[in-house]
Computed example of a mutant assay.
Amino acid sequence: MTDVHLRPFVAADTDWLVTQHGDLYAREAGFDDSFGPLVRSILEAFNADHDPVCERGWIAEAGGTRLGSIFCVREDAVTAKLRLFLLVPEARGRGAGQMLLGQCMSFAREVGYDGMSLWTHESHAAACALYARNGWDLVASKPVRSFGQDLVEQRWVYRF
């Protein structure tokens, strides 16, 4: 996928990301209507007060079409949190996910975080496999009821 490039997230991407997350997770995982508003609240908070020195978001594009996103935000003084990692179906398996993850991890390392964390569900098997291939460790797993579904919530960490 050589035509894919990453650009900084801008506030004008918010509605697209909310729609993509809501539609994709409803279609692929059966999530209910509570997921889109959660994504919107995360993005609105990021737009309102993120620190661009140590927090960033990226959009993957090809030919002017948005393909996905990833965000690096502060969890605490030494740990970055990976958020809102998404790839539209047509971008999967073509290297865009690795490109986004690599950018996010490199940024976190460059700005001085000691490590990273993320929260996901085990049903996101391809993403979890990508995390494992990149040296992330699964440190916690528990059954939950979220977004109208019985899920297994996971926490992954990475140390630089």
Score class of each variant (00 low, 15 high):
residue 42 I to Q: 14
residue 21 H to T: 07
residue 52 P to G: 07
residue 63 G to T: 11
residue 129 A to V: 02
residue 67 L to D: 11
residue 112 G to E: 15
residue 114 D to P: 01
residue 134 N to L: 07
residue 122 E to F: 13
residue 114 D to W: 08
residue 1 M to Y: 08
residue 121 H to P: 02
residue 152 V to L: 11
residue 56 R to T: 05
residue 71 F to P: 06
residue 62 A to S: 11
residue 123 S to K: 05
residue 117 S to R: 15
residue 20 Q to S: 06
residue 84 L to D: 00
residue 48 A to H: 04
residue 3 D to E: 10
residue 44 E to K: 13
residue 26 A to T: 14
residue 134 N to E: 01
residue 150 D to L: 03
residue 19 T to S: 13
residue 141 S to L: 06
residue 75 E to W: 05
residue 15 D to R: 15
residue 90 E to Y: 05
residue 7 R to H: 08
residue 11 A to F: 09
residue 45 A to D: 13
residue 3 D to M: 10
residue 53 V to A: 13
residue 158 Y to T: 00
residue 142 K to R: 15
residue 133 R to P: 02
residue 3 D to I: 06
residue 18 V to P: 00
residue 67 L to Y: 14
residue 5 H to P: 03
residue 129 A to K: 10
residue 82 L to M: 14
residue 9 F to N: 07
residue 97 G to R: 09
residue 70 I to S: 01
residue 89 P to R: 06
residue 13 D to V: 03
residue 16 W to E: 06
residue 91 A to C: 05
residue 20 Q to F: 01
residue 138 L to R: 15
residue 25 Y to I: 08
residue 84 L to W: 00
residue 72 C to R: 03
residue 52 P to K: 06
residue 90 E to C: 07
residue 131 Y to D: 04
residue 18 V to M: 00
residue 151 L to E: 00
residue 58 W to K: 05
residue 138 L to F: 09
residue 74 R to I: 04
residue 130 L to C: 02
residue 75 E to C: 01
residue 46 F to H: 11
residue 153 E to K: 15
residue 21 H to A: 14
residue 30 G to I: 11
residue 39 V to M: 05
